[in-house]
């Protein structure tokens, strides 16, 4: 009797614990979905504002003194043009038509910024060592896991210049391989990366310029 009562209590405890764990999982699930949705909406609003400004040629440039000065330094060596939206600095818009992605790219990365939009991790689209990172939200770089070689990628700067790329390969990179990820001597011009589903590694999409001579 006593053993039976103990079993019953233990069973109840385990069931309650199990329900609590499942509730925790549900909460985390909905939180992730909410965060992803919020990030998608935020980046969409910024993207639209930036696109409108670029199309109308009214993008507020943060470094006009660099762009406006008549100088002999080739454009590829100049700092990237920066547009300002909501007091935040952006480099342009990244588009991957096959994945139905059109996202703004922030000038520099930090964890707060990654919650809003993809960010430049290192390099420049002018010098062919452009590395962009983003969270694997559904509306950010989550679809990168479905990227295929040969797909088109376009980057539009805030001054309206278009840089066309094609995906050359998709690879998995260890989180400690920073040098490998940003290696400017490698045979790619732009890299997009995000975490794989487990978060232990990074999914890197390498892209090659197609509009250069």
């Amino acid at each position: 009797m006593k053993a039976s009562s103990l079993k019953k209590k233990l069973g109840n405890a385990l069931m309650i614990a199990g329900l609590l764990l499942i509730c925790g999982a549900m909460i985390l699930l909905y939180y992730n979905r909410w965060e992803s949705s919020k990030a998608g909406l935020a980046s969409l609003n910024i993207r639209n504002a930036l696109a409108e400004a670029i199309n109308e040629g009214t993008a507020e440039l943060a470094q006009p003194e660099v762009q406006a000065v008549e100088n002999t330094i080739p454009d590829e060596y100049l700092p990237m043009a920066v547009g300002v939206v909501d007091d935040t600095r952006y480099l342009g818009i990244l588009e991957i038509p096959s994945l139905e992605l059109s996202l703004p790219v922030r000038e520099n990365w930090d964890y707060n910024s990654l919650k809003i939009s993809p960010c430049r991790y290192s390099g420049s689209y002018k010098t062919g060592d452009f590395v962009v990172c983003a969270h694997n939200y559904d509306k950010h770089f989550g679809p990168l896991r479905n990227a295929r070689a040969g797909a088109e990628v376009v980057f539009i700067s805030v001054t309206g210049e278009r840089y066309s790329y094609v995906i050359s390969n998709v690879e998995t990179v260890q989180p400690t391989d920073i040098d490998y990820m940003i290696d400017s001597s490698a045979d790619w011009d732009m890299t997009l990366f995000t975490c794989t589903t487990g978060g232990r590694t990074r999914c890197a999409v390498r892209c090659i310029r197609t509009d250069q001579n």
Binding site: I22, S36, V173
Partner: peptide, 24 residues
């Protein structure tokens, strides 16, 4: 020393769900 963590925490969802189911 590492590339930034750019993934949402999904593995805890699976883990918690699995543990919860097992406990239950």
């Amino acid at each position: 020393a590492n590339l930034p963590q750019t993934g949402q925490l999904w593995w805890p969802v699976y883990l918690l769900s699995a543990l919860g189911a097992v406990f239950f």
